[in-house]
Amino acid sequence: MMQDYFKKMRGTAQSAPPRVSHAEVIWSWIGAFLGIAAVAWLSHLLFTGTDLTLTIGSLGASAVLVYGAVRSPLAQPRNLIGGHVVSALVGVTAWQWLGGDPWLAQSVAVATAIALMHLTRTLHPPGGATALIAVIGSEEVHALGYLFVLIPATLGPLVLLLVALIVNNIPANRRYPEVWL
């Protein structure tokens, strides 16, 4: 039994997925560039001088999926928006209920975010980061309370989604999304 357990650690597949074409690399770059630029530009335009922001680290992770792994189930709109929203809700709640024990608030936030994303079929890896950010974030982030769920956790991914719809459908052999809901 122990032997089987350790055998699993060796992996089963002979090799990882192949490297994508250069065209794919270039379109991933263009999409991510425009997506993050749009988020940063909007954030600057709307929220300069306020405590609000649109640029959170987890959007960088989302960009990997929605511009770099366009076909992935994890990158579809339901997951992109739903994953961030569900995780932000969990993160803010974890901070407000368990903020006194930072380690507990952090671990509960991420673990619960994954569980709820699974249950709602919105699994989106960057959601875990969003949940964590809601706990470990700055004083400004904490002060937002559940507004964090709306800005940036809903608006940010929405901007990425809009750019993904525009850019990912330009190349002939790329399309987005595979499925909406």
């Binding site: 597949a13 997925p17 076909r71």
Partner: peptide, 21 residues
């Protein structure tokens, strides 16, 4: 074989988020 699957994956543009297994 893994080689068959990887070859097929190369024919589909874009990153396919699945292992051969």
């Amino acid at each position: 074989s893994d080689a068959d699957i990887l070859e097929a994956m190369r024919e589909i543009p874009g990153y396919l988020d699945i292992t051969t297994g």
